Amino acid sequence: MEVKDLMTYKEVIDSLNAKKRQKHLLFGNGFSIAYDPTIFSYNALSKFIDDIDNDLLKKLFEVINTKNFELVMQQLDNFIEIAKTFSTDQNLIKKIIEANEILKTSLIEAVQKLHPEHVFKVPEEKSKCCHLFLNEYLSKEGKVFSTNYDLLPYWILMRNESKFAIDGFGREVENPDEVLRKQDPIFSELQWGKHKKEQTIFYLHGALLIFDTGIEIEKETYDIEHYLLQKINERMADKSYPIFVTAGSAQEKLNHISHNKYLSYCYDELTEIEGSLVTFGFNFGEYDTHIIDAINKAAKQGQRAGNKLHSVYIGVYSEENLNYIKEIEHKFRCKVNIYNAATVPIWEDK
């Protein structure tokens, strides 16, 4: 069977709705690439390696011959462990660790520079179309999971004043005693936790607008004087960086996730979904097995019926994608269905 012969996205949604099956969405970098492939891609990001003033990083990219940041990060992490074990040259180890940190921070800065300037740069018709796509899940008590770090989904949901998108953040009153004495309340930054039980939007690998202060998880917001990217830039200038999973292997990603209360909560929520999961722009590559593990936990193998994940619908664009999913299909503990990703109306009607 070829990709063009697969079921369409509309057929997937119509089937799930007819069955009254609870459905959730997981999307990856393909979501943003579909908006603009010249902006949101590893190749576009990797151009910034030329601007990094670090000879070790430049040489590593040449030796590995890849545009994949994750792979380079993985090799750097491996190199650090090897150097610690076999080398007594502390200066070399220090250089490798510094190069690793430079790469991670440069990746965040690159994403920031490659973004559209602000939400209103996204054409209105694309914004509305994307909101309808996301709302198909959110308005029917579904959950939306993203492995992306960019601002597109946040922008779309805010611009369209989504009634169903809840990211778990809210403001706390910092002077409750004074408020009781009829004084005006002073509100905190947007902090995560107060509304997590109602949360419907989950950034599995973090996002540019989410920061860990060491005490609270905060979300940056725009104001009347500054767009969101400007505010993020100010934080980054002060050496404060967003929560951002940049480790290479799936195990390294999972380690990062487990050591952050926001990320671990989002991951745990993925392991508890029921019904069906629709995926788009997520290829389940070798560095994504932690996501398959979460899906398998939700599938609750051995439990024949009841509250569990019954199936996953995976979108593919090419014959290569199709063949790859067929090769790894056995890794899933729930039914795998494959559909034609080119038929998904994310940014334009199809």
Rank of each mutant, 00 (worst) to 15 (best):
M7I: 15
M7D: 11
T8Y: 05
Y9H: 14
K10Y: 09
E11C: 11
S15R: 12
S15E: 13
L16A: 10
A18C: 02
K20R: 13
L25Q: 08
L26S: 05
F31K: 14
S32G: 13
S32A: 11
A34S: 15
Y35M: 11
D36F: 08
T38F: 02
N43I: 03
N43H: 08
L45E: 00
L45D: 00
D50M: 02
D51L: 11
D55W: 00
D55I: 09
L56I: 11
K58C: 01
K58E: 01
K59A: 12
K59T: 07
L60S: 12
N68Q: 09
N68W: 02
E70Q: 11
V72Q: 01
M73W: 03
Q75N: 13
L76N: 01
N78G: 10
F79L: 15
F79K: 06
I80N: 05
E81A: 12
A83D: 10
T85G: 00
S87E: 07
S87Y: 09
T88E: 15
Q90C: 00
Q90H: 01
Q90S: 05
K94M: 03
I97H: 05
S106G: 13
I108E: 10
E117P: 01
K128V: 15
C129E: 15
C130N: 14
H131Y: 15
L132F: 03
E136Q: 15
S139N: 14
K140P: 08
G142Y: 10
K143H: 10
P153K: 07
Y154D: 04
I156C: 03
M158T: 08
N160C: 12
S162V: 00
D167P: 07
V173R: 02
P176T: 09
V179M: 11
V179H: 12
L180R: 15
Q183L: 12
P185Q: 13
T200E: 04
T200H: 04
I201D: 06
Y203H: 14
L204E: 07
G206S: 08
G206C: 02
F211Q: 09
T213D: 11
I215Q: 06
I217S: 02
K219F: 00
T221K: 09
D223I: 01
I243L: 01
V245R: 00
S249M: 06
E252C: 03
L254P: 01
I257T: 08
K261H: 08
K261N: 04
L263V: 11
S264Q: 10
S276E: 04
V278M: 05
T279N: 07
T279D: 02
F280D: 01
G281P: 03
G285L: 04
D288M: 09
D288F: 06
K297M: 13
A299N: 04
G302H: 03
N307E: 06
V316S: 09
S318V: 06
I325Y: 07
I325A: 12
I325S: 10
E327G: 02
T343R: 13
V344F: 02
E348F: 14
D349R: 15
